[in-house]
Amino acid sequence: MASSPEALVEARSLTKRFGRHVAVDGVDFRIERGEAFGFLGPNGAGKSSTMRMIGCVSPVTSGELRVLGMDPAGDGPRIRARLGVVPQEDTLDTELTVSDNLTIYGRYFGLSRTVIRERADELLEFAKLTERRHDRVDPLSGGMKRRLTIARALINRPEALLLDEPTTGLDPQARHLLWERLYRLKQEGVTLVLTTHYMEEAEQLCDRLVIMDRGRIAGEGTPRDLVARHATREVVELRFRSASDLRAALPRLAGVAERVEPLADRVLAYTGDGDATAAAIADNGVHPAAILVRRGTLEDVFLVLTGRTLED
């Protein structure tokens, strides 16, 4: 495979099977150095399996994968030496303190104690955990544990940071702090590769992303591109009192927007001008319980491309 040197990860027909279950079904993608690349999709879309193959902890079933120009099958240790991994589940060493977690992780990478000590101070500061350095890991909050996991993943100064669902399970405040830290890393030029099922996270952090569903890639581009290509600038959301109200209104919504998408609990009208569409809806004698004009998002893109919502 003639992979140009600047690609960080390159996959062709990448497939992962567990017995008869196909987790990743022949995907192609390319991640460049210095970008923030995302896999957006619901649970079970194959995002984590893809990440684990990139991280060289899970063997490729078939297809081609190159990470840092090397083959994970033969060069696993050498590739992992240059990556930082933030797994979905916390794998912090609960028998050790906060700072010992960084120390031993650095030792796993073969770093000297002097180097580790310097970097650990810096990373604890970055993770806002300097005051907790001598504490055990268990009593830390979810957000602190995540930040420590990120700090730990940075101990070897990785060329890319792989983050699998980095903010799942965190409260909004902890999530925003984490996004801010990740944004800082991005500014410093660290390549970020992340999976998420939060479209807000994908929009905030990703330069480019692929939309994954049932082991396949359904779309690819920058967040703005994807919205422009598959959704519309604005979306009018209509909520009804009951499903029968919703069904009754549908005939009178035909033609008010570029596309009208009925969901279980609401109707989405895709349009370039939300206010005009809202007015047209009222003119047609449709009076929903609530009406909301918002901009088009990746959530809409996902819906258009897969026919399902991200929460499904």
Binding site: V57, T91, N156
Partner: peptide, 14 residues
């Protein structure tokens, strides 16, 4: 439970 070795195996160790 602690997934200690999952963390170890994400490093160059085997």
């Amino acid at each position: 439970y602690s997934k200690t070795f999952d963390a170890v195996l994400a490093t160059p160790l085997e």
